[in-house]
Write a protein that binds this DNA or RNA. Sequence first.
DNA 1: CAAAACTAATCAATCGTTTGATTAGTTTAA
DNA 2: TTAAACTAATCAAACGATTGATTAGTTTTG
Lengths: 209, 209
Amino acid sequence: MEKEKIDKKDHILDVAEKVFAEKGFDGASTRLISGEAGVNMAMLNYYFGSKEGLFLAIFERRIASFQKILLGIGNDEESSSWGKLEKYLDSYVDKVVNNNCFHVMLHREISKTKKTELTDKITNIIMQNVIVFRNILTGGIKNGEFNNTCDIDMIVATVFGTKNYVVNTPHIASLLLGYDVQDMTAQEELLKPRLKAYMKGLLKAYLVN
Amino acid sequence: MEKEKIDKKDHILDVAEKVFAEKGFDGASTRLISGEAGVNMAMLNYYFGSKEGLFLAIFERRIASFQKILLGIGNDEESSSWGKLEKYLDSYVDKVVNNNCFHVMLHREISKTKKTELTDKITNIIMQNVIVFRNILTGGIKNGEFNNTCDIDMIVATVFGTKNYVVNTPHIASLLLGYDVQDMTAQEELLKPRLKAYMKGLLKAYLVN
DNA sequence: CAAAACTAATCAATCGTTTGATTAGTTTAA
DNA sequence: TTAAACTAATCAAACGATTGATTAGTTTTG
C-alpha cells in the first residue's frame, strides 16, 4: 500500500536523524543506519538515492513543519512585549527540546565555515526565526517596556546559544545541571521548566531595569 | 635539529586543527591532513601514534596554555568575585575568538550525543574549565556579592553558549551583528569589545541585584 | 656507526553504492 | 475467469574506492 511505503520512509528518516545526531554525517555509516532501522542497506539508496539524499530529506521534512509554527507567534497584537517574549520562549523551548536530535544535526551543519547550498538554506530558515524574536525585542524598546541601552542582537545570540549549549552538548550539560538531559522524563519535568524560568529571569533582569 | 622537530609537529597540529574544524573528525582523512601539511602520511602515526592521538594532541596544546590563565584567575585572592569574573570574561573572549578554529572543532565533537572514548576525554577537559568559572560564581554567592537566587549552572551555559553562537555559527552571527565575524579586523575592533561589554552588562544585571 | 627521522609501498578493514535475483501484488488480455 | 505480463519492494552478495595503520628500507643526524 501507498500508506505503508510512506511510513517506512518516515521510519528510516526517524532513525537516520538519530544516528546522524549521534555520530555526525561521516561517522554514521549506511550500514549502521539501515541496521538500526531494520531495513536492507540497499533501501536507503532505493528511497533516497544516496547517503546525502537521505541527509537532505531529513532537513526537508523538519523544515516544512518548522515554518508553520513560526508564523503564529509574532502576530499576537494584544499582549505586551514581555508577554510576547514569554510566549515565544515557552514554545521555542518546547519545540527545540522535543526535536533535539534534529537541532543537533542542524547546528553542526551551520557551524561549517564554508558556504554550501545547504548552509545557505538553513541560514535563511533560522534567520526567519531570529527575526521574529528580534522584532519582539525592538517592539519592547519602542514602547518603553525594555531598557533602550540593551544590545538586542546579542540577546538573540544568548537565547539561542544557551539553548544550544544545553541541548546540543548533552554530556557537558548533564554534568553541569546534575541530571541526564537526554532522558525524556528529565527533559519534561526538570529541563524544560528550568530553562524557561531561567531565561525569563535572565532577560527580565537585563531588559526591564 | 630538536627545534625543527618541534616546529614540524607544531605545523602539523596547526594544519590538522584547521582541517578538523572544516571537516570534522571522521570527515578529515589522514591523507588530506598530511597532504595539506606537506608531510608524509606515516609521519602522523610516527609523531602522534594514531589519528585520535593527533586529535587529542591538538587539545592538549590548546588546553595547556588556557589552563595557565585560568588558574591565575581563580586563585586571585585579592580581587572581588566580580573582579575575577570580569578578568575571566576578558581573557576567555580573547582566547576563544583568536582560536576559533579550535573551538569549532571542539564543539562539533562534543555535540555528538553518543558517548565514546573521545567524547569522554573532551568532556573531562572542558569540565575543568567550566568548574573554574563555576567556582567564581559560587564564591560570589557565598560572600554575598551575587544574588543567591541565581541559577549558577545555567549562567555557565549562557556564557559558553553565547560565545558558541557568535563564534561557531559565522553565517548567522554575521547577519545578526551586521559585520563579518570571520574577518580578523572586525573581530578585533568590533566583536571582542562588544562581546565583553555585553556579557558583563548581562551578568551584572542578573547577578548583582 | 648507531639512533632518529623519514619515505614509498602495502596491509586488512570499512566505506557508499550497485548488482541480479526474488518476492508479492496488481494489471492486462483472451 | 484465469493465465500471462508487469511493477514496486526487498534481498544477499559483491563492487571499486578509500580509510587508518604498518611495514621494510632509506636518508639524515649527532
